[in-house]
Design a binder for these strands. Sequence first.
DNA 1: GCCCAGGCGCTAC
DNA 2: GTAGCGCATGGG
Length: 323
Amino acid sequence: MRKEILIGVKTSKTCFPDFPVEKWDDTGTTGFLRLPEEFDFAKCLKFMARSPEEPCHLVNQGSLYKLLKLDHDPILLKIQLRNKNALSIEFLTKRPIRSIRAKVAKYVWNWFDMETNLKSFYRMAKDDIVLKHIATSYYGLRMVSIPDLFEAICWAIMGQHINLNFAYILKKRFVESFGERFRIDNRNLYLFPTPELIAKQSVSRFKQLQFTAKKSAYIIEVAKKIKEGALSKKILLEKDSFKSAKKELMRLHGVGKWTAEYVCLRCLKDPAAFPVDDVGLQNAIKRQLRLTAKPTVDEIYKFSRSWKNWEAYATFYLWNSLM
DNA sequence: GCCCAGGCGCTAC
DNA sequence: GTAGCGCATGGG
């Protein structure tokens, strides 16, 4: 469905103009990723640092720390701005082999949605009554995605119908209980729990963490589906359209319209994903237009007429405007 | 006690 | 297809 973009793989296609240049220093532990235009790392980090409870990454003094597991061993990364054209990716764990370096570069590229050319978004937004201010104030902000499908679905289910602060507390308890831990500077970083481990848990185990019985059951079911191979990001991306992917997601218990849209937006990166039922989106529009009440879903569709294929970005910028 | 928060499933019509 | 309702948690 979506053209795969290879990074750091030397093929005849490397002359592709948007292809990121990935270089490595002599030690092979630090890589440099060329940035696209309209990229503001500090603004992305601000979004990522919005909750102190976030257990899966750490933002500290302009650096982002992330634990990843791409094959057997956990990898700890330190990512920071090298200069205005490049991001540096440093391996704090052992020196990576070449194939891992390429995978990590690709992961970071995808994570910060660097493949998207934002020019037409800003062209559209500058005359849009809802977006014109935030497109300026958040200029360079990239959509921070959730590359892992299991994490994206779990996070969406956790966040259903509760306030975001409590959602982060649930996520923290979940990750600290079941995720692999790594210590850095007296702080803990965790891998998001695996579907294999979560599939084996009971509802009562999650209720101890103050998950509702329903949310617990939903998450266990998703874990089982992924573990069995009946559900994967690849399967969803191979559907003939994002609409089909959304429909497939909605077959899961606990995944309704909002959750499916959310996963399409943050994980599958459907540019037209648009969670119109989202109260955060509604409140952000209300604030931008100084409305006295939250807009209805029909009103939101009217406001967004010119956002075609930029709905996901518009939503992401609007979410940021609430921070 | 009431309403709200990054909703969903079930039922009845 | 959709309107109404129960679920069930923390914060203000």
